Lab assay of single mutants.
Amino acid sequence: MQIFVKTLTGKTITLEVEPSDTIENVKAKIQDKEGIPPDQQRLIFAGKQLEDGRTLSDYNIQKDSTLHLVLR
């Protein structure tokens, strides 16, 4: 499925993911596309910070959802 990741600069990254993918996995995909190390990434969805060990389906993230990427 496709999800979107919006950065603070207003750029939107499109990712191909599975509901069973972990947040860690998603961060690795963002690193592949953007070169941002996962340890600098914070992903936010519906006002919640997403934890590495959980999956997209744990957070009820569905296709065409938009996550927000904050760098630390």
Results as ranks from 00 to 15, higher is better:
1 M>G: 07
1 M>K: 03
1 M>L: 05
1 M>Q: 08
1 M>I: 12
1 M>R: 03
2 Q>R: 15
2 Q>F: 13
2 Q>G: 10
2 Q>M: 10
3 I>E: 00
3 I>S: 00
3 I>W: 00
3 I>V: 09
3 I>Y: 01
3 I>A: 02
4 F>P: 03
4 F>G: 08
4 F>H: 13
5 V>P: 00
5 V>W: 01
6 K>N: 15
6 K>G: 09
6 K>E: 14
6 K>R: 08
7 T>R: 13
7 T>Q: 05
7 T>G: 14
7 T>V: 13
7 T>P: 02
8 L>G: 05
8 L>N: 04
8 L>D: 05
9 T>Y: 06
9 T>P: 09
9 T>D: 06
9 T>E: 14
10 G>K: 03
10 G>D: 14
10 G>Q: 11
11 K>G: 10
11 K>T: 10
11 K>N: 14
11 K>P: 12
12 T>P: 10
12 T>R: 03
12 T>H: 05
13 I>T: 08
13 I>H: 11
13 I>D: 01
13 I>Y: 08
13 I>L: 07
14 T>V: 07
14 T>R: 06
14 T>L: 02
14 T>Y: 14
15 L>K: 00
15 L>D: 00
15 L>P: 00
16 E>T: 09
16 E>M: 08
16 E>R: 08
17 V>S: 08
17 V>D: 01
17 V>A: 10
17 V>Y: 10
17 V>K: 00
17 V>G: 05
18 E>L: 11
18 E>V: 11
18 E>S: 08
18 E>K: 10
19 P>G: 14
19 P>D: 10
19 P>F: 06
19 P>H: 10
20 S>P: 03
20 S>R: 14
20 S>K: 13
20 S>G: 11
20 S>L: 12
21 D>V: 11
21 D>Y: 06
21 D>N: 07
22 T>W: 12
22 T>L: 13
22 T>M: 15
22 T>S: 12
22 T>H: 11
23 I>H: 02
23 I>E: 01
23 I>Y: 02
24 E>L: 03
24 E>G: 07
24 E>M: 08
24 E>V: 08
25 N>T: 05
25 N>P: 02
25 N>M: 04
25 N>D: 02
25 N>F: 06
26 V>F: 03
26 V>E: 00
26 V>L: 11
26 V>N: 00
28 A>N: 11
29 K>Y: 10
29 K>S: 08
29 K>T: 07
29 K>D: 13
29 K>N: 09
29 K>Q: 06
29 K>F: 03
30 I>M: 03
30 I>W: 01
30 I>T: 02
30 I>R: 00
30 I>D: 00
30 I>N: 01
31 Q>H: 08
31 Q>F: 14
31 Q>E: 03
32 D>L: 06
32 D>E: 08
33 K>Q: 12
33 K>A: 12
34 E>V: 03
34 E>M: 04
34 E>Q: 08
35 G>L: 06
35 G>N: 13
35 G>F: 09
35 G>Y: 09
36 I>V: 06
36 I>P: 15
37 P>T: 06
37 P>Q: 15
38 P>T: 10
39 D>I: 04
39 D>L: 13
40 Q>I: 03
40 Q>A: 08
40 Q>K: 07
41 Q>P: 14
41 Q>S: 07
41 Q>D: 02
42 R>T: 14
42 R>A: 14
42 R>D: 15
43 L>Q: 00
43 L>S: 00
43 L>T: 01
43 L>M: 05
44 I>L: 15
44 I>K: 14
44 I>N: 08
45 F>T: 05
45 F>S: 11
46 A>L: 11
46 A>Q: 05
46 A>D: 13
47 G>I: 03
47 G>N: 07
47 G>D: 13
48 K>A: 10
48 K>G: 14
48 K>E: 14
49 Q>K: 12
49 Q>T: 12
49 Q>I: 05
49 Q>Y: 08
49 Q>S: 09
50 L>Y: 01
50 L>G: 01
50 L>D: 00
51 E>G: 02
51 E>K: 02
51 E>Q: 02
52 D>L: 03
52 D>Q: 06
52 D>E: 07
52 D>M: 01
53 G>I: 04
53 G>E: 10
53 G>S: 10
55 T>P: 08
55 T>G: 11
55 T>L: 08
55 T>R: 14
55 T>H: 07
55 T>Q: 09
56 L>M: 11
57 S>D: 08
57 S>N: 08
57 S>T: 06
57 S>H: 14
57 S>A: 09
58 D>M: 06
58 D>R: 02
59 Y>K: 01
59 Y>A: 03
59 Y>N: 13
60 N>S: 11
60 N>E: 11
60 N>W: 04
60 N>D: 06
60 N>Q: 15
60 N>V: 08
60 N>P: 04
60 N>L: 08
61 I>A: 06
61 I>M: 07
61 I>F: 04
61 I>G: 00
62 Q>D: 04
62 Q>S: 04
62 Q>H: 13
62 Q>E: 11
62 Q>K: 05
62 Q>F: 07
63 K>F: 08
63 K>G: 12
63 K>Y: 07
64 D>S: 01
64 D>M: 06
64 D>K: 02
64 D>Q: 02
64 D>N: 06
64 D>Y: 07
65 S>D: 13
65 S>K: 05
65 S>W: 05
66 T>R: 07
66 T>L: 11
66 T>E: 05
67 L>E: 01
67 L>I: 10
67 L>G: 01
67 L>W: 01
67 L>D: 01
68 H>P: 01
68 H>V: 02
68 H>M: 13
69 L>T: 04
69 L>F: 09
69 L>H: 02
69 L>D: 01
69 L>E: 02
69 L>Q: 13
69 L>G: 01
69 L>I: 14
70 V>Y: 09
71 L>F: 03
71 L>S: 12
72 R>D: 15
72 R>M: 07
72 R>A: 12
